Amino acid sequence: MEILAFGVQADEKPLIEQAFRDHHEVRCLDVFLNQDTAPIAAGSEVVSSSVNADLGPRTLEVLAAGGTRMIAQRSTGFNNIDLRMAERLGMTVARVSYYSPYSVAEFAWALALAVNRRIVRASIRTRDFDFRLDGLMGRDLHGRTAGVLGTGKIGEAFARIAHGFGMRLLGWDVAENPACMELGMKYVSRDQLLAESDLVSLHVPLMPETHNLIDAGALKTMKDDAILVNSSRGGLIDTMALVAELREGRFTGVGLDVYEAEAGLFYLDKSLHAIEDDVLARLVTFPNVLVTSHQAYYTEDALRQIVDTTVKNVLDYKAGRRSENVLVPRA
């Protein structure tokens, strides 16, 4: 059986090919899976998708008509998949429920430190042999407050690093994490966390309940000199509201590894094209904003875990087994 893998990055391709070598043939494509590219999968029983795939009703219908019966998504998030439609079409859907939380937590901290200490601006200056320090002043994070929205495995890893910096910890989640409480984390309401935190980092999944969790009201609750980091999902932040606050000169820094309209942009080379997304174009012009292209997970360790789990999901599907990774079981 040949597996067709969509949206495969150059660094990812050899890992996927090696992992499947002793099990099934795999063909890797750099194009993303959507309703326009879905016909390519005709005749493929199993396809593997990336986080930026568009697996809405029409895409799923095209895949099902072409004979696809299983979708193995190479990510934890699955908000891009219409699970009800997949079930209606008799398609099995699986994801990677767990991979290295350190990859994302460490990158979130890289963003926080970069915007706090103006690293990007400093690097650009020194390339031009401008060695002034004007405008590069940051703040000690030791002794300040870190607010962690979402204290699962990634949020816990982020909190451990914050604890190492000597920061006070505030947390918000539907369930308290005992490991975070052992670090001294105090669980509070969302608004109290936002009002008291000098650094706010988002580590919750994107669901209807968390869509625009950081909306205009939440942003106004935050300190004027706070740092906001999002390495989870773009839809957690109302980007238009964020731009409005940035125009008012608020926030020491904002680090975004995700963007709510990133599909069709992230993972692609758009350097020779006019960017039609006015919100993103405006966002990247602010000197205190750093935007990266959904790369927090992108470490060798995390990718190996993602690929290995994807292989396991395919093998489980063929053997009729079910695991915690299955979102829609085999009919």
Rank of each mutant, 00 (worst) to 15 (best):
E2Y: 02
G7T: 00
V8A: 11
P14C: 07
P14R: 03
P14S: 01
L15F: 12
H23K: 05
H24E: 12
H24P: 03
V26H: 01
F32P: 00
P39E: 02
A41G: 00
A42K: 15
A42P: 08
V46W: 05
V47K: 01
S48F: 04
R58T: 12
A64M: 02
G67W: 02
T68N: 05
T68S: 07
I71S: 08
R74L: 05
M85L: 07
M85C: 14
E87S: 14
R88I: 01
L89C: 05
L89Q: 05
Y98C: 12
S103H: 02
S103N: 13
A112D: 07
N116Q: 12
A122S: 14
S123Y: 14
I124T: 15
T126P: 03
D130S: 04
F131S: 12
F131D: 13
G135S: 04
G138Q: 05
L141D: 03
G143W: 05
K153N: 11
K153D: 13
A159T: 08
I161N: 00
M167R: 00
L170D: 14
G171F: 00
W172Q: 12
A175H: 09
P178T: 04
C180R: 08
M181K: 13
S189E: 11
A195K: 12
S197C: 06
L202Q: 06
M207N: 04
L213S: 01
A216I: 02
A218D: 07
L219N: 08
T221S: 15
A226Q: 07
L228R: 03
A241C: 00
A241Y: 09
L242Y: 06
L246V: 10
L246K: 01
L246P: 13
L246D: 03
L246T: 02
E248Q: 15
R250M: 06
F251P: 04
G253Q: 09
G253T: 06
G255S: 01
L256G: 11
D257F: 02
D257G: 07
Y259S: 00
A261H: 08
A261Q: 15
A263D: 14
F266Y: 09
D269E: 03
K270E: 15
K270S: 05
S271N: 05
A274S: 15
I275D: 14
L280A: 05
A281H: 13
R282N: 01
T285F: 12
F286N: 01
F286D: 04
F286K: 08
V289G: 04
Q305I: 10
I306K: 03
V307R: 07
D308V: 02
V311Q: 09
Y317M: 00
Y317C: 05
V328G: 11
P329S: 09
P329K: 03
A331Y: 00
